[in-house]
């Protein structure tokens, strides 16, 4: 459904995208995961025909994003990272407007938005600007869906939304997927990666790795330990001085230790005890996407 071939783009000499190659199958829920500034939004703008790539080409549903942009605009739904609906129009007015713009009506595609719209309905006469963050996001999704698009582009839809709404949102996406809609979604939250069929980890305009979230985690070969004691700061210092540990990263209340070689939890425990730590807890953990990402970051030069 989406194919890109070596897409690059720079802003005033600073590369935003450098040779992006990836493809998304029909009906897939594909996630672009990466921190701010990784080039996710630029990639979205190219795929939604708002930006021309400097080199390379992209196809959406078989249409070239530069030559056939008119055809693409009819069949995609786009939800920009920033709330981009008319804040001074009501919920209903926004929906009607976007439906008309696409030459359709709200009634015609109501089945697609019904579930989401039911939650919005109590506020249908409220101005979009006065909605809460979660409601705004639902409205934006409705507006992007109103013309029954084949491909849905969602640029950081869950940024700035509370945990409950985020969860609801991903459930909604699963349902849309069931309608056969191809979805490309970006997020800076690593924990959302597991919700996607496949993900691409992005950093500095490049795709570092692309796979299913499960494969990505299981292919993580290094040994991983979670550690905590009562002296968090001293713990970082001490562990970084330990020669068997390759990398120390804070993960919530734990520190994650990574090493190519196998690490013995007991040895780490003794090492810390010798340095005066108390309440020591050391346990092996399975890798998360974030571990994979941080590891890849380390491996990438620059």
């Amino acid at each position: 459904m989406i194919v890109t071939n070596d897409i690059s783009k720079s802003y005033a000499g600073t590369p935003a995208l450098a040779g992006i190659n990836f493809s998304v199958q029909k009906g897939e829920l594909f996630g672009l995961i990466g921190p701010d500034g990784a080039g996710k939004s630029t990639l979205f703008k190219i795929l939604t025909t708002l930006l021309r790539p400097a080199t390379g080409m992209a196809r959406v549903a078989g249409f070239d994003t530069v030559k056939d942009y008119r055809s693409i605009r009819k069949i995609i739904g786009y939800m920009p990272g920033r709330f981009s609906l008319y804040q001074d129009l009501s919920v209903l007015e926004n929906l009607t407007f976007f439906a008309t713009v696409f030459g359709t009506t709200m009634a015609a595609n109501y089945h697609l938005i019904e579930e989401i719209y039911l939650q919005l309905e109590p506020f249908k006469n409220r101005r979009a600007g006065q909605l809460s963050g979660g409601m705004k996001q639902k409205l934006a999704l409705c507006c992007a869906l109103i013309h029954e698009p084949q491909v849905l582009f969602l640029d950081e839809p869950t940024t700035g939304v509370d945990a409950v709404s985020r969860n609801e949102f991903w459930i909604m996406l699963k349902r849309l997927k069931a309608h056969g809609i191809t979805i490309l979604v970006s997020t800076p939250y690593m924990d959302e990666a597991n919700r996607c069929d496949r993900i691409a980890l992005m950093q500095e305009g490049r795709i570092m790795q692309m796979d299913t979230p499960e494969n990505m985690v299981t292919s993580y070969r290094k040994s991983l330990l979670a550690v905590r004691t009562n002296h968090f700061y001293a713990l970082i210092q001490d562990l970084r001085n330990n020669p068997t540990v390759e990398r120390v990263e804070p993960f919530g209340e734990y520190l994650h230790l990574t090493s190519q070689a196998e690490m013995d939890p007991q040895l780490i425990h003794d090492y810390l005890l010798a340095r005066g730590h108390t309440a020591i807890e050391v346990k092996p953990v399975t890798a998360s996407i974030e571990d994979v990402f941080l590891d890849l970051l380390e491996a990438t030069p620059g």
Partner: peptide, 13 residues
């Protein structure tokens, strides 16, 4: 400034 133009631009208007 409000970003609404981005939404308009991806439509067939």
């Amino acid at each position: 400034e409000l970003g609404t133009i981005e939404q308009i631009n991806v439509t067939p208007i």
